[in-house]
Design a protein around this nucleic acid. Structure first.
Lengths: 202, 202
DNA sequence: TCATCATGCTAAACTTGTTTACTGAATAAA
DNA sequence: TTTATTCAGTAAACAAGTTTAGCATGATGA
């Protein structure tokens, strides 16, 4: 690595470090690029040399913890448990993770969820990994006979993910609602999904 | 009404009218408060006297059409059709409505969906009305024996709504995706939900 | 009618994300 | 080594949402 490249990487690291601290300390709104630049000892414009926008910086600052949370949950899935329990281990776990700092994660999701995929690589990758894992779970349970053979795993995974997204939306929209209330609701809805709601099937 | 109150109402009307035209003409991002103020013949600050923020103005400018779209769809539900067809009449209809101007509605949803309920009365009311209507539909189909008796109508309505929200998110996130593709996916997922995916129920 | 009050509206300022034009040092080329 | 080039970093400007302090006009009451 060049001297130039090294110095560049170091500056980038300083900015990210300052951003991590200040974002979690003061939230997205109250933390300005000038604050971050000041703490990192660089100019405000320099922040945007390394990160395309404040949103991109926020994403970069938070996505590591999200990835760790998800892979930690995946690694700790109770092996022998039923399908619903395994799904709720993941979904409730992620809800509880976001609940630890609702404001900052609400800001992140709000700023990224409706952006084109190319603009938000970090969050997109997380969502895709989540859905892919769900899809694999469904596939295995299909193979073992728990799930019916005519079920498309991708659609099932997307459905479960949409329930999770809906619950997350409720969590962010209703500050007075406890995460456990939302989690229980999600659990009931997912259970109902797994059961099916219409009568008279073959 | 006072002379003062009348003049105030008139100004408010002018601002809203200008906002409607400019928002749909140039989109949210490219249309500034100063533009709207100019077109309405008032000062920029005056816009914010009547509407708390640019977001609030956008909401006010669009929510009428959304309400009309939803009630039009509700009024035109095919009476004798099956549950899935009636649901898709609504959900697909709303997706097609938002598709007519994805950019402006993406901006609206993005700015309102994660805000506290009290900040976005218009959009909140629309969502609530939608879910309430879905809930009534489920209740009726439960009474007529189409839906199983152990199904909670509110949870079912919320599930169907979350599918719809997920589809809307995909529509906004993926500009290259056609509304009919998203609608078909939503249809498949909702159908699967109505069927249930697990085996071996009583 | 006159004095007081309330308020719709505004100009100007403020804030903050972002862009632009530039500089000086590091690197590459000769 | 000397020259040319690249480019990390910056100061200053810019853009646009929002806030503030004040004004002028209409409402209110004596």
């Amino acid at each position: 690595m060049n001297r130039r490249e090294a110095s560049k990487a170091e500056t980038r690291r300083l900015v990210l470090e300052a951003a991590r601290e200040l974002f979690s300390q003061k939230g997205m709104q109250e933390c300005t690029i000038r604050d971050i630049a000041g703490k990192a000892g660089v100019s405000p414009a320099s922040v945007l040399v390394h990160y395309k926008s404040k949103t991109a910086l926020l994403e970069e600052a938070l996505v590591g913890d999200i990835r760790d949370a998800l892979s930690g949950l995946i690694a700790s899935i109770p092996a022998g448990a039923g399908l619903l329990d395994r799904l709720m281990h993941l979904s409730k776990g992620m809800l509880r993770f976001y609940d630890r700092d609702r404001d900052i994660y609400r800001a992140l999701v709000r700023l990224t969820i409706f952006e084109p995929v190319t603009e938000t690589p970090g969050m997109t990758k997380q969502s895709e990994e989540y859905v892919r894992f769900l899809s694999e779970m469904v596939e295995k349970d299909k193979a073992s006979g728990v799930i019916r053979q005519n079920v498309d795993p991708m659609f099932a995974a997307a459905s479960i993910f949409f329930f999770y997204l809906g619950a997350l939306t409720m969590l962010f929209r209703m500050p007075e609602m406890s995460v456990e209330t939302v989690a229980d609701m999600l659990s009931s809805m997912t259970a109902q999904y797994l059961e099916g709601i219409t009568q008279g099937r073959p």
